[in-house]
Design a binder for these strands. Structure first.
Length: 636
RNA sequence: GCCGAUGUAGCUCAGCUGGUAGAGCAGCUCAUUCGUAAUGAGCAGGUCAACGGUUCGAGUCCGUUCAUCGGCUCCA
């Protein structure tokens, strides 16, 4: 009889051919129901899988990532059955799990919202009937026969390597789908799900191939979690920066400039504060700043190599019948600045920053608020250093990034190091040196990071930073890239102690990435309640009645003199209404002034969290706000 | 760029099967001068995205264009 090793070191002896489900019942008792699959000697298996010999087993529940993925993958199959039963002509293609839920692509005319509801209803019916999932193994010939009516499945079967076991799952007694599995033992356990949207998607993501209809859904083990998820979606909708941007009068978009943001007064304040912050941080760290032209000769883009890789995304213009291009990146301009004089090794490292406005011709369909635009400002910088300085510079850059993210209340970022891709330039030893410097930089700071083998740029390895916002969404912002290409192409040199020219190492880096996009992220992260230092309206004065207008104006002037952005609401409206308006417009401090305040030269303070803090002498409040700004405090 | 949906007042939206546009909020005026999230009354505001077609008649039906929104790596 086989021996089974279970977690915690317990051993069981069981009958040959017993299934994992039987084992679960036996060893887990009541908890067996929570198991959706099991690791058998390190491989994920269906619970219906028989145990043939000694092995190590660990049961999987949907509390862990693999279990949840499998559960959602089964959900996709549940949806597929529902779709096929309602639309027998639809041809199922693939139905994988994605980061948030699952989808299934069908070859079928577009589905409507009503179709979605019908499908969901049918899914509920299927769940209530129950569908044991049965795994079957097929020979290639059987598989080709079984799926002969579905060209997509046939294509997949034909692509499978010779000799691989082809499997399919039968749901109950009917719907059968080609699938590697594993799956939950019975679809009946999928109790909470929602179909979220329909969209067109290409077969295999290739725009030259057939357009399919994709249905996205999400599933959970209980309705409570589903409800929480839908609430989070609703919250995200409320925080949509496009909505808040309009409501808070920050920016707008116009037909006259598709994908080009128009910054209003308040948005400009945010933009300027953000720029000033980055400038200040750069200067503190020994950066010099430059500013290079927006339009540069097309020859330059040929020389930089951008033409070959980037021409599709560039805008062009002719001047005096000579060809020019609008810059999609700042580096070539920055390199020309570097080359204006000879550099000694004593000058290095040179850290040259540029808040550079770049234009890129993104496909019209991918434009999205401030997140995806056609013109944006990068907080760019190029570091020129010697090979010996590389690791130190990398450490400084990583620290810089993390420091900036903390300032905005983003916890430690997720970090990814990408190494040499197949298609690359530069010698192996130089790649080795640079990659090692990136590893060492991260290790010296004792940071956790992931390695993406072969995902680096063709011109060098890189580190990317993903920040997580308050809704736990991930945003790629910072990047540190080593570049072996540009110094060669532009013949960059510095004079070393041996009196001869040497090639410097070049690093590109951005921390925020795009100021526009970062502002969008910040708006959604904070729900529009920006920290004091970057907030467009830091204080709003509300005089109780007309006779307090002049006092309110006087306090406003005092605050403005002290560097605070303040406004007075002198409208002939009730106090309550004006307070409500100030709250909705997200002024950080709402300062009510009436007879009492006039008399004591104070203001009555209310904050955005709906707290009334009572009277504060004006000089005290001013000092407090100044301190809050100076320290860039994360405010309520 | 491709697929689908949407486009009515500054904003959010109503307008059934074609008969000539309506509400709330915001704005303006007047009254009110108020102590912590919506005072009341009145006024004004629209080539119904644009263009073309069908019709006696189009916000409504058809076509084209434009813009916006949701998607278009996740490999059974």
């Amino acid at each position: 009889m086989p021996h089974v090793m279970l977690p915690g070191g317990s051993r069981e002896e069981i009958q040959v051919g017993s299934t994992l489900a039987q084992l679960a019942k036996h060893s887990l008792g009541k908890q067996a129901k929570a198991a959706v699959a099991a690791w058998m000697d390190g491989e994920l298996r269906d619970l219906s899988c028989p145990i043939e010999g000694d092995c190590t087993i660990r049961f999987v529940t949907i509390a862990e990532p693999e279990g949840l993925d499998l559960f959602r993958h089964s959900s996709a199959h549940l949806m597929a059955e529902a779709v096929i039963s309602l639309f027998p002509n639809a041809k199922p293609t693939i139905g994988p799990v994605v980061e948030e839920g699952f989808y299934y692509d069908f070859d079928h005319p577009p589905f409507t919202e009503e179709d979605l509801e019908r499908i969901e209803k049918r899914m509920r019916q299927i769940v209530s009937e129950g569908r044991p999932m049965r795994r079957i193994e097929l020979s290639r010939a059987e598989a080709l026969e079984q799926f002969k009516d579905n060209p997509y499945k046939l294509e997949m079967i034909r692509e499978m390597p010779e000799g691989e076991t082809i499997t399919a799952y039968i749901q109950g007694e009917g719907f059968t789908d080609l699938c590697r599995g594993p799956h939950v033992p019975d679809l009946a356990c999928i109790r909470a799900f929602k179909l979220l949207k329909v969209a067109g998607a290409y077969w295999r993501g290739d725009s030259s191939k057939q357009m399919l209809q994709r249905i996205y859904g999400i599933s959970f083990k209980n309705p409570k979690e589903l409800k929480a998820y839908l609430a989070a979606l609703e919250e995200a909708k409320q925080r949509d920066h496009r909505k808040l941007g309009r409501e808070l009068d920050l920016f707008s978009f116009h037909e006259e400039g598709q994908g080009f943001p128009f910054w209003h007064d308040k948005g400009t304040i945010i933009y300027d504060e953000l720029s000033a912050y980055i400038r200040q941080e750069c200067r503190r760290r020994g950066y010099i700043e430059c500013r290079t032209p927006m339009i540069l000769s097309r020859d330059l883009w040929h020389r930089s190599g951008h033409w070959d890789h980037y021409a599709d995304a560039m805008y062009f213009v002719d001047i005096d019948e000579k060809p020019y291009a609008i810059k999609p990146m700042n580096c070539p301009g920055g390199l020309l600045v570097y080359k204006t004089r000879l550099h000694s090794y004593r000058d290095l490292p040179i850290r040259q920053s540029e808040l550079g406005l770049v234009h890129r011709n993104e496909l019209s369909g991918v434009l999205h608020g401030l997140f995806r635009v056609r013109a944006f400002t990068q907080d760019d910088a190029h570091v020129f250093c010697t090979r010996q300085q590389l690791t130190d510079e990398v450490v400084k850059l990583i620290e810089f990034c993390i420091d900036v993210y903390r300032t905005f209340g983003f916890p430690d970022p997720e970090i990814k190091l990408s190494t040499k891709p197949e298609d690359h330039i530069g010698s192996d030893d130089v790649w080795e040196l640079a990659t090692q410097a990136l590893h060492e930089g991260l290790q010296r700071l004792e940071l956790d990071y992931k390695v993406d083998e072969g995902e680096g740029a063709f011109y060098g390895p890189k580190i990317d930073f993903d920040i997580l916002d308050s809704l736990r969404r991930r945003w790629q912002c910072g990047t540190i890239q080593v570049d072996f290409s540009m110094p060669e192409r532009f013949d960059l040199t510095y004079e070393a102690s041996d009196g001869r020219p040497h090639r410097p190492v070049m690093l590109h880096r951005a921390i925020l990435g795009s100021l526009e996009r970062f502002i969008g992220i910040l708006i959604e992260h904070t729900g529009g309640k920006l920290p004091l230092w970057i907030s467009p309206e830091q204080a709003r004065l509300i005089p109780i009645s007309e006779r307090h207008h002049s006092y309110a104006s006087q306090v406003r002037a005092e605050l403005e003199t002290g560097g605070i952005r303040a406004a007075v609401d002198m409208r002939d409206e009730t106090l309550g209404k004006r307070i409500r308006a100030a709250q909705l417009e997200k002024a950080n401090y709402i300062l009510v002034v009436g007879d009492k305040e006039v008399e004591s030269h104070s203001v009555n303070v209310r904050t955005r969290d709906n707290k009334v803090h009572g009277a504060y002498p004006v000089p005290d409040l001013l000092a407090q706000l100044q301190e809050e700004i100076r320290t860039r405090k994360l405010s309520v």
